[in-house]
């Protein structure tokens, strides 16, 4: 269960902003808080210096996460967190830059920046909290809302198709793609830890629950029921690869789905600057 370093149960409290009002703004039982805990534990295990961490978010429920954290935090405009984060990282590569975004924020309005950040393979960790709905604005369907599911803008059932986030990220060039859930918190924490350590663009999809809208409109129950569903339907990739397709029916795969070593954007640029400087000296 707990990995090597014995992490104290109140470790999260040492990373919260003293001036912020708690409890957090999310609905009771919202998975965002669980993801925030996993992120803090991952950062704590990595022993990162708070001054060297920048957390950037867009707009949406998930994007209210950074304001609670005692890091350099940037709450930007809807869909643009990755573009802002690219500026932060590229300007100051020594910063560990982590983007917190949602399924709507990253894949609808932010889709263009998402695929280009993957393509560039810039050293940024993106935690994409996927609750399959726009929560902040009251329950509209998003690019990951299940077919047939109801939402305030899909009153007759969602007739659109969904993105497969990991396939999209892999195809676009991300070098670390993983999926976790807010039930399997320790796995999620390890995936985030790996993502932050990875030199390149890392995407961790955190399957989360929006019982306030998605659960209510689709009769999937409260937070406990939705998180319980994840517990019963997630299949770690190590096990999934051994199972025949029929055994995987209704299940979704979690864990590290893709990892490769590819040249990283800031590193490529640094080498260019060095080559030019060397050429200049040799003149």
């Amino acid at each position: 269960m707990a990995t090597d370093v014995q992490q104290k149960s109140d470790v999260t409290h040492h990373y919260l902003r003293a001036k912020k009002k708690f409890p957090n703004v999310w609905c009771a039982g919202c998975g965002n808080g669980i993801v925030m805990g996993a992120l803090i534990r991952a950062i704590d295990r990595l022993g990162l210096d708070k001054d060297g961490v920048a957390v950037v978010s867009g707009i949406g429920c998930s994007s209210r996460l950074p304001v609670y954290l005692d890091f350099n935090t940037l709450h930007t405009t809807h869909g643009r967190a990755l573009a802002f984060a690219t500026g932060v990282k590229f300007a100051k590569p020594e910063l560990k830059v982590i983007v917190i975004t949602g399924d709507g924020d990253a894949l609808a309005i932010g889709g263009n920046h998402f695929i280009h950040a993957c393509r560039r393979n810039i050293d940024i960790t993106t935690i994409l909290i996927n609750n399959k709905i726009y929560g902040m604005t009251g329950g509209q369907f998003s690019p990951t809302t299940t077919a047939g599911a109801h939402a305030t803008t899909a009153p007759y059932g969602n007739y659109e198709k969904q993105f497969d986030i990991s396939k999209l990220a892999i195809a676009a060039g991300a070098s670390y793609v993983a999926r976790g859930t807010v039930y399997h918190v320790q796995q999620l924490e390890k995936l985030i830890q790996g993502a932050i350590s990875k030199k390149g663009f890392a995407v961790v999809e955190a399957v989360s629950n929006c019982h306030t809208y998605y659960g209510r409109m689709n009769r999937e129950g409260d937070a406990v029921a939705m998180i319980g569903w994840m517990k019963d339907h997630a299949m770690p990739i190590q096990a999934a690869v051994k199972l025949p397709p029929e055994k995987m029916a209704g299940k979704f795969v979690t864990g590290l789905l893709h990892e490769t070593d590819a040249t990283e954007f800031c590193e490529e640029y640094r080498m260019l600057v060095e080559r030019l400087a060397a050429k200049e000296e040799s003149k």
């Binding site: 405009t77 690219t86 590229f90 300007a91 640029y269």
Partner: peptide, 26 residues
Amino acid sequence: PKIGGKFIQMEDEIGSIAAVIGASNA
């Protein structure tokens, strides 16, 4: 690049100004 400054061509103008603001905060 000759002076160690940073140049990036972003995917659109929205990304360009976003990166500029991110960099300024850095």
